[in-house]
Design a protein around this nucleic acid. Sequence first.
DNA 1: CCGAATCCGCAGTGATACTG
DNA 2: CAGTATCACTGCGGATTCGG
Lengths: 218, 218
Amino acid sequence: MRQRAFGQYCGLARALEVVGERWALLIVRDLLVRPRRYTDLHEGLPGIPTNVLSTRLKELERAGVVERRLLPAPDRAVVYALTEDGRALDEAVLLLARWGAARLDEPRPGEIVTPDSLVMALRSTFRREAAAGVSVTWELRADGVVLYARVANGELHTGVGPAPEKPDLVIAMAPTGPPPLRALMSGELSPQAAVADGLVQLAGRPKLLTTFVQLFRI
Amino acid sequence: MRQRAFGQYCGLARALEVVGERWALLIVRDLLVRPRRYTDLHEGLPGIPTNVLSTRLKELERAGVVERRLLPAPDRAVVYALTEDGRALDEAVLLLARWGAARLDEPRPGEIVTPDSLVMALRSTFRREAAAGVSVTWELRADGVVLYARVANGELHTGVGPAPEKPDLVIAMAPTGPPPLRALMSGELSPQAAVADGLVQLAGRPKLLTTFVQLFRI
DNA sequence: CCGAATCCGCAGTGATACTG
DNA sequence: CAGTATCACTGCGGATTCGG
């Protein structure tokens, strides 16, 4: 269970010894969105072997990145959450995700989209400099995934599930979600074309789709 | 040679498929400092098996992150360099390195320090907001490693080897380099104590050590 | 059902030797 | 110098099983 070292006294090497193992940063990504139970994590990480998930969680816990919380009765559920140290990975993960998002082309057969990865997609492509004076709540729906994004005071707040308050605009993706979203965010597809082609169905003020495209941009 | 996929349509997953394999980001780290030859890379990555280095370079090349350049005669040397896409990893790598640097404590037995990792250490801990009005060149020496850092116009320029122009301050670390540097950068050790204890020998204007400590900070 | 532990086949890694 | 070749080993993927 001891982590393989890189033999260098170096910050990057240390970081990779902790979060460089396979699946580790994806676990962190999900936990950055919200604390999750073992089964939730397993569900959000397609194909991760249960022994690997279990091993990673223990390693991350021992490294002080993840905390194992036992919820009180009657739930008695186990919940994994990031420590403060773990949350400090936020920026680095966002930048890596942003770099990777720029290389996303078509989804490969069998690839899924999870709520957590969509939240990361929004957060990693949010352009703060375009958010001045904007105050809007969006709700995004795709493939049974529902999440929301609220921009106010130059800050972005995101979450999984329906928007806590009535959204100004609901964006429903069709037929299978994220590719049209990615096309919008990368500028390959104009908002008008997206609506005209039926890839996006709007509920609410139509001009806010353009605002969305200006704010979230690969 | 096929890269194992994560089964998610997600920027982070894509990024990790490219640079998430073992040793990959450390190779990128070295190439972010300067193009390197195969043997240089092998030297700067303690213990990397040659077949793994070779495999990673091919994978990174195929992914468009690394470029293999054949220098013209008479050298005929092979040099690996980052593509523009590869250089775009800079910020993400710096942030990961910064996160890891905060968890560096004592060096472990046998761990080495390379010029490239020291350059990354400086770049990842540079606090731009403290650099206004500063215009200084430092030269750092430790264990035969020599590098320089120049701060001017709020920007940091670093390089391996002696400073191109006469440095304002030469900092020589003793007896074995980086731990005193890390102690300085983390605030565990005051500049005065570092000099008094003989961990740092100065050549130049002594007050610039304090400036250094203010500029490079974990 | 949740939260794993266990087992097995195999691919990726580590160490060393070797070559154009 | 710039890699390939070989081989032992270990971590991963996949499936099943198990206790609370």
